[in-house]
Simulated assay, not measured.
Amino acid sequence: MGVADRLDLTLRLVQGSDRVSVSELSHRLGVSEMTVRRDLDALERQGLVRRVHGGAVATRPLEEGGGFAAREQWQPATKERLGAAVAALVEPGSRVLLDAGTTTVHVAEHLAGRGPLTVTALSLQTAARLADRPGIELLVVGGRSRPGEHSLVGPLALRTLESLSFDCFVMSIGGVHAQQGWSEFSLEDAAVKQAGLAQSARTIAVADATKLGVRAFSKVAPLDAAHCFVTDAAAEDAATHPGGPQTLQALRKAGVETLLV
């Protein structure tokens, strides 16, 4: 396991527990306690965990209110793999609607090499990654930039989406649950995703495994609204992601293709 992937998994293990010890992390990760301590120190410097005697505890939940800048540091190696996998599913020549979110920034970087594409961006961050890239015709949805997130929301964004049609919607998501379906923490972001779903021939949903089993505040759509779901292979590990296997089973039962990377 590379350093970046080990840091991702360490952070997941800490976030998934009230408190985790250095010895437990050493056993789970198959590395020395000295290595674990170095990794925890690195994560603490980023503000992602807090060191306590003999172990570490989680800081505030990043996905529910840390803002884009805070969440951007969460699992970068995992999101890079997800971004590459999603971009590989997009056919050159497509009209793509690209959602807001920290994972879709990585998708944008890989889409830059998949041109020719017409990409409509739902956030300022993804638009910045694709501006002036050869082979990419970039459109930016109007609307209000949501503070802390820079996702584009509101009536203007919705009206713009209703006037367009897309071959593919790459949808990031705050939560996916066997009963609730796809959901988001923000009502405004949920409304934009609903419009994107309605205007797209195909939807590829993408999220890291920590989103499986999560019921966020606002329901976006039932599970079968997406055609494909891309997540990381840790979703199958019930020890680190208790809601993962059940959610994957529900997705497959709903006819959603699941791709684990």
Rank of each mutant, 00 (worst) to 15 (best):
T240P: 00
D5P: 00
G154Y: 06
D232I: 06
A207C: 12
V256F: 03
G181L: 01
L40H: 04
R38Y: 03
F217R: 11
D167R: 11
R159E: 14
P61W: 10
A239D: 07
V52K: 05
L248P: 02
L223N: 10
S123G: 14
G213M: 03
V107H: 08
V31Q: 12
H53M: 09
E162Y: 00
F217S: 08
P155S: 14
E63M: 13
T102G: 13
L48F: 00
L187V: 14
L187E: 10
A128N: 11
A70H: 08
G143K: 05
S145F: 04
D99N: 13
A84S: 12
G142Q: 10
Q249C: 13
D8M: 04
A239P: 00
V86E: 01
L117M: 10
G113W: 08
L164D: 01
T126S: 14
K79T: 08
L9G: 09
R45V: 08
G181M: 01
E24T: 15
V3R: 15
G148D: 07
V52E: 11
A225W: 00
S151N: 12
T104C: 10
G16E: 01
A4H: 12
T118G: 14
W74I: 03
A205Y: 02
A195V: 05
G181W: 00
V105K: 06
L164E: 02
V90A: 12
Q249F: 10
I204E: 13
G54R: 09
R252Q: 15
A195E: 06
P245Y: 07
S21T: 15
V96P: 06
L212E: 02
S200G: 03
L9A: 13
V192K: 06
G243N: 07
A127K: 13
V22F: 08
K79M: 02
A239G: 04
R202V: 05
E80C: 09
D232R: 09
H177E: 05
R95F: 11
S23C: 00
L156G: 03
A254S: 14
L223T: 08
V140P: 03
G213K: 10
G115R: 11
S200E: 05
L124V: 14
R6C: 08
R37E: 01
P116S: 12
L124G: 09
V105E: 08
H177T: 00
L7P: 11
L138G: 10
L139I: 07
A84W: 06
E162H: 13
L11M: 12
A112Q: 10
A190Y: 05
Q75T: 15
S23D: 08
A250C: 10
V14S: 06
G142W: 02
L82W: 01
L158A: 13
G143D: 06
A207M: 03
F166I: 07
V153F: 00
D132K: 12
K253W: 07
Q180Y: 06
G83I: 04
V107G: 11
L7Y: 12
